[in-house]
Design a protein around this nucleic acid. Structure first.
Lengths: 118, 118
DNA sequence: AGTCGATATATAGACACTCGATATATGGAA
DNA sequence: TTCCATATATCGAGTGTCTATATATCGACT
């Protein structure tokens, strides 16, 4: 039988799972800094998802603290101060599993919400 | 062009939108009472969604207060006391729009989270 | 030179929602 | 009659997002 993902979307806190998936998913495209992530996600979702600063940065700090992403400040001297994040090995694995979990979530949602009607 | 749904999934509170969609979606199959809704949704989603009582009933009260569902107590005399809910006209319309909004949400999620890769 | 808006990060308080626990009550099975 | 499933209701705790505020740099316009 198919491999089951061990990770589950936390249905009691979907916003958190969703926001983390958006950020981690974007970081699969390479290192990004916070402000850049917000713009990219907003653009790619055609405005559906727009991060508030007070939401974005705490999430990035949390993901860094749990070792899913690692941040590095831009060199001083030249350019605006910014912190660039990239996925760690652990973060890559987690992201894969999280996106699988979201697929399962969406299947379950459809099964539950749309009757097996004609 | 296609009709755009005016309703949007509240991305800052996905759990709430999701729970309401699950309940309203189930009620499209006909009147249900609270406990029954919880069992049905859990079964149809293969255990992905399981309502806690402390979550379910406040939502039902909220939906009733906003006129999306209407509840009626079972006749006294005969049988266990229970409150059966059904969709109102307003609730049917809202449910249709909410489920459309969820489809759009899922499209946007995929666009944002999965790169436009090969 | 000075102001303004966009870029860029950070944090605190207010608000909302779910969770777990608790309470009440009935019906059927052991 | 004791226990469990059914059935509804509500409160406090915990957590997460939102809005507002703070700091700082850069480019453009005046």
């Amino acid at each position: 039988m198919e491999a089951m993902s061990r990770l589950h979307v936390d249905t009691s806190n979907l916003s958190r799972s969703c926001n983390e998936a958006l950020i981690l998913g974007s970081l699969r495209g390479g290192p990004r800094h916070g402000y850049q992530l917000a713009l990219e996600i907003e653009e790619r979702s055609k405005g559906m998802f727009s991060f508030n600063h007070g939401t974005l940065y705490p999430i990035l700090h949390r993901l860094e603290k749990t070792g899913l992403i690692s941040g590095s400040w831009s060199q001083d001297g030249g350019g605006r101060r910014r912190k660039s994040y990239e996925l760690t090995r652990k973060g890559e694995k987690h992201t894969r599993e999280l996106l699988e979990a979201w697929d399962e979530f969406q299947d379950a949602f459809h099964s539950a919400v749309k009757g097996e009607g004609p």
